[in-house]
Amino acid sequence: MNSLGEYIALIIILACLVLSALSAVLIRGQITTIIVLSVFSVLCAVLFAMLQAVDVAMAEAVIGAGFLTALFVTAADKTRGQGS
């Protein structure tokens, strides 16, 4: 984090992070919410890689964008019906 350009890139990523979290909460529709949550996890991974935490970035990318998305989609498919 030495130059001004990296600082501006960090601010842009933080703004996208807040926007994606807000839209994951506010958007209607379960599958859309889950995909936006996956985008949120990928943005988190980019942020962690910028903040010198490469191990945490790899874990967040694999778990948040890969495993939890599959788990959420499975649960949404299992609870799809007239009730929800």
């Binding site: 379960q30 889950i34 949550l37 949120f40 988190c44 942020l47 962690f48 945490v56």
Partner: peptide, 19 residues
């Protein structure tokens, strides 16, 4: 399902703070 999504977002916030 949406409650679980919100829980996941809160957990990510704590990890951002730690990093």
């Amino acid at each position: 399902i949406q409650i679980c999504v919100s829980l996941s977002i809160m957990e990510s916030a704590v990890i951002i703070l730690l990093v």
